[in-house]
Design a protein around this nucleic acid. Structure first.
Lengths: 157, 157
DNA sequence: CAATATGGTTTCATTATAAAACCATTCGGT
DNA sequence: ACCGAATGGTTTTATAATGAAACCATATTG
């Protein structure tokens, strides 16, 4: 793969987008998050071309985000989220919340989300300090870390 | 526009990805989040081709995610996050956190994030119930909402 | 044993991206 | 007034990714 890859940027977000930034990848992962596991489930739900779906699933398996399994007995293939894949839930839910807010479906939300244990609804995704206060938009301060060559300073939004 | 656009899926996450899912878009928005505002700042920081950067900036302006301004006096152009754009901070920070965790930069993080008011570091992005409990991976329950159902199943095209 | 389900791969036309060249305006100095 | 650099683009042209359709190989079902 030569066209893509933001490699050479030693930046973790670019690496993240190398793993999941291709067209369809996040929608596939959303379906996985919703519990879909099979090739044809993804295909039918998303209307994605077979060859592209195949390429994406292989890529996500290579990246360690999905795991490919042969279901015993029934002998069909399953694609299951790994721990890395499940860790993308914050990305997925942030996107869904943003879309619900700024690009809403005229018929209302397709799904609603609850805590499986308590049955409580979820909070909107937000940014918190370690002591639990909400950080307001524009109030994130960005400071250089060890991975940056000394000098440049990031500014608040 | 035939290649892009996940239209026809009446799903807010697909709409979100139509707005910000193209190659480079999220990296541009990250730079905007970091305080960059100018064409050449984006270009130099990201190494993106001028024509593509131009196309992306125009698209993000059309989507209402960036606002284009003529800086008074100095007469240079500025691209500023709108409220919609700032609301993508949860998406951006989720991606950065995931990348830091699973695709770390060998030299360490490029930036660290603090609450501008208290100076406190930020929590890892996570999912919370309305009463403030963390929802563990795999413990989100997804139930059908009003947008699902009646004669509209993700009919592609 | 034929039909169907499943999970693909191959081919080819279309579309997006990247690099480089070119362009127009403004600004700062002499 | 003139020169050169800075800024913010647009226009080519080659290459790479995508999408649709056709094809294929096993398994299972009836």
């Amino acid at each position: 793969m030569k066209y893509k890859s933001y490699k050479g940027m030693n930046c973790s977000m670019a690496q993240a987008l190398d793993a999941i930034g291709e067209r369809w990848a996040l929608l596939i992962l959303r379906e996985a998050f919703y519990g879909k596991t099979r090739f044809n489930q993804f295909r039918e739900e998303l209307g994605i071309a077979r060859n592209i779906l195949s390429a994406r699933l292989n890529h996500l398996v290579d990246e360690g985000i999905l795991e490919k399994r042969q279901a015993t007995e029934t002998a069909h293939t399953e694609y299951i989220l790994t721990e890395q894949g499940r860790a993308l839930r914050t990305v997925i839910l942030s996107l869904i919340h943003w879309g619900d807010e700024y690009r809403p479906n005229p018929n209302g939300q397709r799904y609603e989300f609850l805590d499986a244990e308590s049955g409580e609804p979820l909070r909107q995704m937000d940014i918190y300090t370690e002591s639990g206060d909400v950080v307001k938009p524009g109030m994130v301060r960005i400071i250089p870390g060890p991975g940056l060559g000394a000098g440049q300073e990031g500014q608040p939004e």
